[in-house]
Computed example of a mutant assay.
Amino acid sequence: MEKAKLVRRSQRVAFYGVPVSGSEETPTYNRMEHFTSLTEGKNPITYERQYVDKDSQDSDVTGYGTTLEYGFDHHSDDPVLADLAKVQDDELTGETRDIVVVDFFDKGESKKDDEYVARKRTYSILPDSSGDGTDALQYSGSFSVKTDIVKGYAKVSPDGKTCTFSETVTP
C-alpha cells in the first residue's frame, strides 16, 4: 500500500484570463504570481427546516456563493497584476474574468506530464483596498462567482507560466 503524501498549497495554482485588448478571442491564462493570499470561501446556501417529529433541525446545501479573497504585492511587467490594478485604480465596474484552478497533484485520466485536472469559472472582480504596507504596494479584494464550474484539463506550458483549458483530455 502506498503511503499518503501531503498535498502542498503550492500544488493548487490559479491562472487568470487576461483579456486581449479589443478582441473577443480566448484570453491567455497567466499564472497568478506574487499573491500573498488566494483563499476560496464556499459560502454555502442552505435550506433549513424543523420537522415536528425531530428535536433537531435539518439543513441541506442548495447552492454556493463562492468567493476567492485575494491579496498581492504589485510587481511591474506582470499582466495579471496590471489588469487587476487597472480595474481597482480606475474604479472600473462590471469587470469579469475567467480563472482556471489547476491541481498539479492530479493528472486524472490524462496521465500526461503537462496536463492536469482543472476547474474554470467566471468571476466578478470586487476590489477592496490598496496601498497597505510600507515595503510593497499591496492590493486586496475578492472574486465573486458568476458561473458554474466547468471541470476539465489544463495543459501547462513548459515554464509553468501559462495554460490552456479544455473540457476533455488532449488526444
Rank of each mutant, 00 (worst) to 15 (best):
S140C: 03
R121I: 04
D90L: 15
Q88I: 02
S21D: 05
T39H: 08
T36S: 15
D83H: 15
G133I: 06
A14L: 03
G22M: 03
F15E: 01
V117P: 02
Q57C: 03
H75F: 13
V61Q: 09
L68H: 04
L81F: 05
G63K: 07
E40Q: 05
D58L: 06
D114W: 01
L84A: 04
A14S: 11
K111Q: 09
G152Y: 02
S130L: 10
V61L: 07
A154D: 04
G65E: 13
P44R: 13
G133A: 08
E48H: 03
S10Q: 09
V169G: 03
T46V: 07
T62R: 14
M1A: 14
V101Y: 03
S56P: 05
D90S: 12
R49T: 00
S129Q: 12
D135Q: 13
G71P: 04
A85Y: 11
V87M: 09
V117G: 02
D103G: 04
V100H: 06
T28R: 13
S140G: 09
L84Q: 12
V52G: 14
G63F: 06
K107S: 08
T134V: 03
E95T: 13
D53Q: 10
T28W: 06
G160L: 14
T67A: 03
D55N: 14
D106L: 10
V87A: 09
G133H: 08
K107D: 00
E95L: 09
Q88L: 07
Y29H: 10
L38T: 00
P44Y: 05
G94C: 07
T168R: 03
E167A: 12
G133W: 11
L6F: 10
C163H: 06
L92N: 05
T170D: 08
D58K: 08
S23R: 11
Q138V: 11
G160S: 08
V100A: 09
K111M: 05
V145G: 01
P19S: 07
F165A: 00
T147Y: 08
R8K: 14
V13G: 02
K54E: 13
E115A: 00
T147D: 13
G141H: 08
G94E: 13
K42H: 08
Q50E: 06
R8G: 02
T96D: 09
D55V: 14
T168I: 09
T122S: 07
I45G: 06
F165I: 02
E91T: 13
D132R: 15
V20D: 12
Y16E: 03
G108M: 05
D83W: 11
G131V: 13
S21M: 05
T134L: 11
V61F: 06
K112S: 02
S59A: 11
D103R: 15
V87G: 08
L6K: 13
T93M: 11
L68Y: 06
K155M: 07
R8E: 12
